[in-house]
Amino acid sequence: MNKYKTEIMVGVFVVLTIGAILLLALKVANQSMTSEGDTYTLYAKFDNIGGLKPRSAVKVGGVTVGRVNSITLDQDNFTPVVELSISKKYTGFPETSSVSILTSGLLGEQYVGFQPGFSFDGVADLQDGDYLQDTKSALVLEDLIGQFLFNRGNDDE
């Protein structure tokens, strides 16, 4: 009986561990989004990406449709190129769509805001590997202040 008790308690221990792993995997780390392998890739060139990082979210109207896969620097004209992995569930964005780098909240992290464009005749849908033409850079606080001061200076004259 004592031997069975030991084995039962070890079994309970193992079950508790599996419970902890499941909690961490599903509730804390949210495996489901990343393990969803069906994605397609879009590229966007920005002048300035600010604090954007790999794995930042790509959102359409607040709904997360994908993630930033990697950020590289184009060696020809020295502009950052952001590779976006968009879930296959969301396809058919028109070519006129635009992307901008936005911040969630005052101190929040930065994400890519995806603005679907108008779809009319002669505008194709975005395909795997396409470049997004219409991009808006991140708002850098120092630039903003500089611009503000510059405008103030102009007003005085």
Binding site: A25, K27, V28, A29, N30, Q31, M33
Partner: peptide
């Protein structure tokens, strides 16, 4: 509490 945790915590990197 849960959703920002989910977007920040990475399975490979953290767990």
């Amino acid at each position: 509490y849960w959703s920002i945790m989910q977007s920040t915590v990475d399975w490979q990197q953290d767990v």
